[in-house]
């Protein structure tokens, strides 16, 4: 029994859960307000936008890539939607046109990323580092370098602020988005192929996986997620500009790292990444409630990343020692035992 407990806390999920327990215990002691419905909802709202982007980023990370352009992409998505919505006088048609145009641009951006990485064989890090500036430049051009402020309460406002059944719409969108992403990764042939591409690209080609097309689709999904997140964000904030989602890349990668996802590709899933996002969101919220000055919050965020990586490397070394990075479930062990008999 005690062996099982130590094993659990040595596993990636054990670590995540125990970190969460520690944070919750601290909050019970110091700030019971943490558990109010209002606060829980505000935590989820803060996570919702980055959660959507985390889903997109995860697809790209699983194939062993990265997309550093998501913050600029979100800003561009938000700006495009804002221009069309405001320009049309906040009509439904204007909103839809803006939305469609933004998604089309997102697909183009993802396509360019994917093609650069697969057909031209450039490293994703370099390609997306460059497009990060290209997209930011595009935002400055389309907004003339100024903020777009919104004041209307039409469809545009609804996207980020409606509360069907009392639940903020962004949270609902976030939950649906993660559910679909988890389904695609876990249950579809496309999802499986991403793990294979990340795990061994040469072998993937030899078992008939269309590695290039599937990689391009992953980059497109990542861009679309970023643009989509940006659109919800500008509706929530009622303003758009170059600074929209400017810290998205940090938050999204932090969530992925804290979620224990291997940046080298081939491993990881939505539950881990979303748990990472949740943990980071909860800690940020806790720091605010505990009255930690905002300057120190960044500091803590950095410490958390290093701590998470250290813990991760430490346990993966240990589990390498035990030769079981992915722990077989009890069921498989039982079947193994019976197979041996």
């Amino acid at each position: 029994m005690s062996n099982k407990v130590t094993k659990f806390f040595g596993s990636p999920w054990g670590q995540r859960v125990s970190l969460l327990i520690i944070v919750i215990l601290v909050m019970i002691l110091f700030q019971p307000k943490f558990f109010s419905l209002d606060n829980v909802s505000s935590i989820l709202l803060a996570i919702a936008i980055y959660g959507i982007m985390v889903c997109g980023m995860l697809f790209v990370v699983i194939i062993g890539g990265i997309d550093l352009s998501i913050a600029s992409a979100a800003a561009l998505g938000g700006s495009i939607l804002s221009i069309f919505a405001k320009g049309s006088g906040y009509t439904v048609e204007g909103f839809i046109t803006g939305f469609v145009v933004a998604i089309v641009v997102a697909i183009l951006v993802g396509l360019i990323h994917g093609v650069m990485c697969t057909i031209f064989g450039l490293p994703a890090f370099v390609v997306t580092l460059a497009t990060q500036y290209v997209l930011l430049g595009a935002v400055l051009v389309v907004t003339n370098g100024a903020y777009i402020y919104h004041s209307d309460f039409g469809v545009f406002y609804m996207l980020g602020n409606a509360r069907p059944l009392g639940i903020p719409l962004p949270i609902i969108i976030f939950l649906i988005y993660t559910a679909i992403s988890a389904f695609v990764l876990g249950c579809t042939t496309y999802g499986r192929s991403l793990y294979c591409i990340g795990g061994n690209p040469v072998a993937s080609g030899l078992v008939g996986i269309k590695t290039k097309i599937n990689t391009i689709i992953a980059y497109i999904f990542c861009s679309v997620s970023a643009f989509f997140g940006g659109m919800i964000l500008v509706s929530m904030n009622m303003m758009a500009g170059a600074a929209t989602a400017s810290n998205a890349i940090g938050s999204v990668l932090t969530a992925i790292i804290v979620g224990g996802i291997n940046l080298a590709g081939g491993e990881g899933g939505i539950p881990g990444a979303i748990f990472g996002a949740l943990l980071v969101g909860i800690i940020n919220n806790a720091l605010i409630l505990l009255g930690v000055p905002s300057d120190y919050q960044k500091f803590v965020q950095g410490v958390i990343i290093i701590g998470a990586i250290a813990l991760n490397v430490y346990t993966s070394r240990r589990s390498e020692n035990m030769k079981t990075p992915l722990k077989p479930s009890k069921k498989t062990l039982d079947s193994a035992q019976s197979a041996k008999l």
């Binding site: 499986r192 793990y195 294979c196 795990g199 072998a203 030899l206 081939g266 992915l326």
Partner: peptide, 12 residues
């Protein structure tokens, strides 16, 4: 290098 996926399970 060409045959199996080392980090993936026997099943996959």
């Amino acid at each position: 290098s060409q045959g199996f996926f080392p980090v993936l399970s026997i099943e996959k």
